[in-house]
Amino acid sequence: MSWPSDELELRNMTLGSVILSAFEIKSNNQLVGLPDWVSSEHFDIQAKMDAETSAAFHSLDREKRHLQSHLLFRRILEDRFGLKFHIEKRDLPVYNLVVAKRGPTLKEAARGCPRRTGRLIRRPGKAHAPSKPDW
């Protein structure tokens, strides 16, 4: 999620999806203590930066703007949903990807094969930051 303009609109998103994005969390296993409705109830969220915040935000370089956008999402979660959180380190189960006894069976893509980047969608919903209002 990003803020290409001074407006943000999230449609039909679960709070869990917004939390995953706001904290750049890769897996639901990293979230502890959330009620079940966080993954089942869907919300529409709209937010708009004031002119001063927008000017300061858009003057940042790309990396700083990315970091700041996550802080803005966290602030929305705190203000609108009363989210309280803390970050802690935990040992989680992992899997090792190893070569099979008979060797690798992966094949290199053919030359000239069009490169298409896939998109992973975690949950139903739509997130976009319109440059112009829909009305």
Score class of each variant (00 low, 15 high):
residue 39 S to G: 10
residue 75 R to Q: 12
residue 95 Y to K: 12
residue 60 L to I: 01
residue 71 L to W: 01
residue 109 A to N: 11
residue 88 E to G: 09
residue 47 A to D: 04
residue 102 R to N: 15
residue 68 Q to A: 14
residue 42 H to P: 00
residue 55 A to L: 08
residue 84 K to N: 06
residue 63 E to G: 03
residue 34 L to G: 05
residue 113 C to Y: 12
residue 90 R to C: 01
residue 53 T to P: 00
residue 76 I to Y: 05
residue 128 H to G: 04
residue 63 E to L: 04
residue 31 L to F: 07
residue 26 K to F: 06
residue 88 E to L: 08
residue 93 P to T: 11
residue 54 S to R: 03
residue 116 R to Q: 14
residue 113 C to E: 15
residue 62 R to D: 07
residue 72 L to T: 02
residue 73 F to A: 05
residue 92 L to G: 06
residue 128 H to L: 08
residue 84 K to Q: 12
residue 118 G to F: 08
residue 59 S to A: 14
residue 53 T to W: 01
residue 57 F to W: 06
residue 54 S to A: 15
residue 116 R to L: 10
residue 46 Q to A: 06
residue 50 D to A: 06
residue 120 L to H: 15
residue 89 K to R: 13
residue 50 D to M: 04
residue 74 R to Q: 15
residue 117 T to N: 11
residue 53 T to G: 00
residue 62 R to W: 01
residue 89 K to L: 10
residue 56 A to T: 08
residue 56 A to Q: 11
residue 65 R to P: 02
residue 117 T to L: 12
residue 67 L to E: 14
residue 102 R to Q: 14
residue 67 L to F: 12
residue 106 L to F: 15
residue 121 I to Q: 12
residue 34 L to Q: 07
residue 124 P to W: 01
residue 124 P to V: 02
residue 29 N to V: 10
residue 129 A to G: 12
residue 93 P to N: 07
residue 133 P to K: 15
residue 38 V to F: 11
residue 110 A to T: 13
residue 122 R to W: 13
residue 116 R to M: 07
residue 68 Q to N: 05
residue 31 L to E: 04
residue 73 F to G: 00
residue 61 D to T: 00
residue 57 F to I: 05
residue 120 L to E: 13
residue 34 L to V: 11
residue 98 V to M: 12
residue 95 Y to H: 11
residue 31 L to H: 03
residue 64 K to T: 12
residue 96 N to V: 09
residue 36 D to I: 06
residue 125 G to I: 00
residue 119 R to Y: 08
residue 129 A to P: 02
residue 83 L to R: 00
residue 89 K to T: 14
residue 70 H to T: 03
residue 44 D to H: 11
residue 120 L to R: 13
residue 121 I to E: 09
residue 85 F to D: 01
residue 105 T to E: 15
residue 87 I to Q: 11
residue 120 L to M: 12
residue 70 H to D: 01
residue 129 A to M: 08
residue 90 R to E: 09
residue 81 F to D: 01
residue 108 E to Y: 07
residue 67 L to N: 09
residue 37 W to E: 13
residue 85 F to K: 02
residue 122 R to M: 05
residue 93 P to Y: 07
residue 79 D to G: 02
residue 53 T to Q: 07
residue 110 A to I: 09
residue 109 A to V: 08
residue 31 L to P: 02
residue 103 G to Q: 08
residue 90 R to H: 13
residue 93 P to V: 07
residue 77 L to S: 04
residue 119 R to C: 07
residue 98 V to C: 10
residue 125 G to L: 01
residue 34 L to W: 00
residue 104 P to F: 14
residue 118 G to E: 13
residue 55 A to H: 05
residue 27 S to K: 13
residue 50 D to H: 07
residue 128 H to S: 09
residue 68 Q to K: 09
residue 40 S to K: 12
residue 84 K to M: 06
residue 100 A to T: 08
residue 123 R to D: 14
residue 59 S to D: 10
residue 92 L to W: 03
residue 100 A to D: 15
residue 31 L to C: 10
residue 79 D to E: 14
residue 68 Q to T: 15
residue 80 R to H: 07
residue 76 I to E: 02
residue 73 F to T: 00
residue 70 H to K: 13
residue 107 K to C: 02
residue 55 A to V: 01
residue 110 A to S: 13
residue 30 Q to I: 03
residue 45 I to M: 05
residue 87 I to G: 00
residue 61 D to G: 04
